[in-house]
Design a protein around this nucleic acid. Sequence first.
DNA 1: CACCAGGCCCTAT
DNA 2: ATAGGGCATGGT
Length: 218
Amino acid sequence: MKFTELYDELKSIYGELGKWWPGTREEIIISAVLTQNTNWQNVEKALVNIRKYCQGDILQCLGKLSEQELSELIRPAGFFNIKARRLKNLLSWIEMYDYELDRISALNTDKLRTELLSINGIGKETADSIILYAFEKPIFVVDAYTKRILKRTFDIEYKEYDEYRKLFEETFTKDVKLYQEFHGLIVEHAKAHCRTKPLCEQCPIEDCFYKIKGKSGE
DNA sequence: CACCAGGCCCTAT
DNA sequence: ATAGGGCATGGT
């Protein structure tokens, strides 16, 4: 399989994902931090707590909480102390725009990314997830799975995150829906074939990275 | 019981 | 520059 065929290959297996990253724009922003190195199921539990606690605007609601209180709400998502601090940092930034996401969305993508990356606790993947899924601007999200599939299936390996991102953005048309689907497909593919050993053997992709070593890790 | 999950930051070489 | 460790819950 050629790299240029990856999207079609994954799509032919898993079909259209539709709205893959669930939730409102506000919830996507919050969950981008909550899901850092964390199973989505645990993120969901934290989101349930947040929805139950907050009436009205979630961002303003959480922005008023102390780090202590916030950490209690998000406890099931793990790393709750550090994530509470990171969320507070992110919310303080949003507060500078009076919690008006449309004003943030009006920034050009480069400026938006630079500002997000200046927040302690917001790294490249988290920033790009927010940009792509919450603000719906065409930027490709690179995660550990993306790197693995490139290395094992196409023998492509870079040092820098942005090199991976550029490869996708220069190979595939800069389209929001395409990038949203593509990243979702990569993650779903990993979930489908990474969880259990037997499924690894059934991976439908020829020379799939899971097949090569028969496990999910390095 | 061990291992992993839709990362990121800080520190010590 | 870059490897290594810490952060923490819940599912398999």
